[in-house]
Design a binder for these strands. Structure first.
Length: 200
DNA sequence: CAGCAGATTGACT
DNA sequence: GTCAATCTGCTGC
């Protein structure tokens, strides 16, 4: 069962980031279904968040998608190589988004291994924003797609209890000054499919 | 219009 | 542990 549109249009992006843990992220491409449980997320709180692309109200062709209605996929190309998958939240006109940083593989293991050019399952398959996007076949062509009735969507799953969730600072955003210290990163405690980041 | 840094990963010393 | 790959968009000349 799909997560309803109201879930994404809620106003507290940090709350949504936490609730997305444990949900099932699915892609269906050329008839192939691949999916994984979301194990790690980060919130990006629009114009007031220096780490966000939309900080200060910046608006470009690329970030335009962030201003769309909650429940839209925002795929951003980072370092010219890696596709980072985000879920747009809040209502139209407010550029909030949740970055999906890691998933635990569920369906389509073979096709994921093939896409990643790997032969056996390791946490590196889907632990990391660029890695999970590649494994699921997500690319910049998916940006702007709604998560309803398209090739990418999220299925409902039981909420992870707070005792199994860890809040931490975000990764790779030290340039954002004070905002880099915000506890906007969430992951499932003890799960192997959580990205390590560079330092931390 | 040229230069540079970034929500990262993987290969090499 | 260190460094290159490769494209978007911001900053500065």
């Amino acid at each position: 069962m799909l997560i309803p549109p109201e879930f994404y249009s809620a106003h507290d992006v940090v709350d949504i980031a936490r609730l997305l843990l444990g949900k099932l992220l699915v892609t269906e491409i050329d008839g192939h279904r691949s999916s994984g449980i979301i194990t790690e997320t980060e919130a990006y709180a629009g114009v007031t968040d220096k780490a966000s692309h939309a900080w200060g109200g910046r608006r470009t062709k690329r970030t335009e998608v962030m201003y769309m209605q909650g429940g839209t996929a925002y795929v951003y190309l980072c370092y010219g190589i890696h596709h980072l998958f985000n879920v747009v939240t809040h209502e139209e006109g407010t550029p909030h988004a949740v970055l999906i940083r890691a998933i635990e593989p569920v369906d389509g293991l073979d096709i994921m291994l093939q896409r990643r050019k790997m032969s056996k399952l390791t946490p590196a398959l889907t632990a990391g924003p660029g890695a999970l996007s590649q494994a699921l076949g997500i690319n910049t062509a998916m940006t702007g797609l709604s998560l309803f009735g398209n090739s990418v969507y999220i299925e409902e799953r039981p909420v992870i209890p707070d005792t199994n969730i860890v809040a931490a600072t975000r990764i790779g955003v030290n340039y954002a000054g004070d905002d880099a210290l915000l506890p906007y990163r969430f992951y499932i405690k003890g799960n192997k499919y959580v990205s390590k980041g560079k330092g931390l």
